[in-house]
Simulated scan of single mutants.
Amino acid sequence: MKTKILVIGMATMIGLAGCSMNEEVSVPKQDGVIGFSIATNKAITRSPIDGATAMQSDGFDIWGYRKSDSHQQVGTNNKPVVATYSNTNTAWNLATAAYWPADASADVDFYAIWPTMHYEIATSIVAGTQTVKYIRKSAESDVKDLMYAKKTTNKTNAAGGKVMLYFKHALSQVQFKGKTAAVGMEVKVKSLQLCNLNNEGTFTFPSAETAASSDHGMWGTLSNPETDYMATINNDVTLNSITNAESLGTPFLLLPQSFTPWNTTTSAKKSIIDADAANESYLKLEVYIKQNGEDILGSNSSYATTYIPLPNPTNDMAFKSGKKYTYTLKFGGGKKEDGDDQFAPIEFDVDVEPWGDAAEENLPL
């Protein structure tokens, strides 16, 4: 798997001219001024965002604490300095200049979150602990990636006074695709809703600095498990192949978490009402299915609602930071609101891949 590195030079009040996404930008040395470079392992290009353009639009927050005595070297009163991009001089600028300690060998711990203020609150970004409270936006159009970086270095070891911040994904990416279960079948999908997952949690930075092979941070204090997510589907998606899968809306960016699938079987049916009461997870879709020209479920003028339990999450299948989960639905039917089958159950194939730099896994279901 090839890796693309995005490196953007940033120093206070320094202009950078036309750089590509695969270049390291040379920044003249400025004694005393702390500068930054940003590196990501496919993190920007593999995100459901507009790459470098989004990064330049949003900016990021940066804190820095002197390791020897916890003095805040970047920011004040435990508040960060905002790094923003200027289209006028094509440069990244710090809102307030930051300087290295007088002792060039004195280490500083740096913590960064991108995009700036996309999290709810930095509850404890201090020298001892680094936690962030995050509440996912309710409208899909408002949801952005959430990334973080941690680095410990000093002026002597920072080339040209620049700190290399390696950003990693804090969220999980979940994509749904669809194909048909039989030749001659055609399925039209109007909407897809992912039901009953947490939308709020607290993220804790990892103990070690971020790098390509480093551990991810941890999520805890998850809440609001009854939250539903509506996929962005601008036009009805038509499925008519048993081999080629089509995307059912743009990917979701979700809090890493485990979940309990809607537990309904032929012998022990459970209704959607009971599933919601138990916060059990499922998909809700509006579909029109026909076989060899004959309507099977819904019609061209009146789509049917069908429900699909999510597959049971094993330890490896629970959503994790920095991983992309692709669920491919093989449409043959679904379930009614009371838990009974409609035509035939829908089956899943699930693929898990690194979204950025997590270890690659392929997990058949």
Rank of each mutant, 00 (worst) to 15 (best):
K190L: 11
S321T: 09
A277P: 00
N198H: 14
S223E: 02
C195E: 06
T260D: 09
Y65G: 04
D340F: 13
I273N: 09
E200H: 13
A39R: 12
T153A: 11
T156L: 06
Q72A: 05
G356T: 09
Y85W: 02
F348I: 05
S213W: 07
P225F: 05
N234G: 12
P251V: 10
H169Y: 13
Q73K: 10
L365S: 15
T153Q: 02
D338K: 01
G35L: 02
M21Y: 15
K29I: 04
V74Y: 00
V189P: 04
T210S: 10
D103F: 11
Y148L: 05
T326M: 10
P256C: 02
N240L: 10
F205E: 01
K155Q: 11
K324G: 05
M164G: 07
M10A: 05
S281G: 00
W114P: 01
S302V: 13
D228E: 09
Y282C: 03
F203I: 08
A304E: 11
D357T: 12
Q257I: 09
A212D: 02
G184L: 15
I44T: 13
A181I: 13
V237P: 05
T156A: 14
T156M: 04
G64M: 04
K42L: 14
W219N: 00
N224E: 00
D357I: 10
L253E: 00
A98G: 03
E209V: 15
L192R: 07
D145K: 09
G298K: 11
K42A: 13
Y303P: 07
A95H: 02
K323Y: 09
T152S: 08
D341R: 06
I34C: 04
A97P: 03
A304P: 05
K168L: 14
E360A: 12
I5G: 02
G334D: 02
E353S: 12
P80E: 00
G35D: 04
P354T: 12
K177T: 15
F60A: 07
K168V: 09
V174T: 05
Y111G: 03
I346E: 01
P364K: 06
M317V: 13
G75R: 01
A43K: 08
N154P: 07
E360W: 15
V132Y: 03
E294K: 15
F252D: 00
A122L: 10
E226W: 14
A102G: 11
P115Y: 03
S124C: 06
A181C: 14
Y307Q: 03
I14C: 09
A43V: 15
S213H: 06
Y229L: 06
T264C: 02
A318D: 03
N89W: 03
V163S: 05
G298R: 04
V132M: 03
G9Q: 01
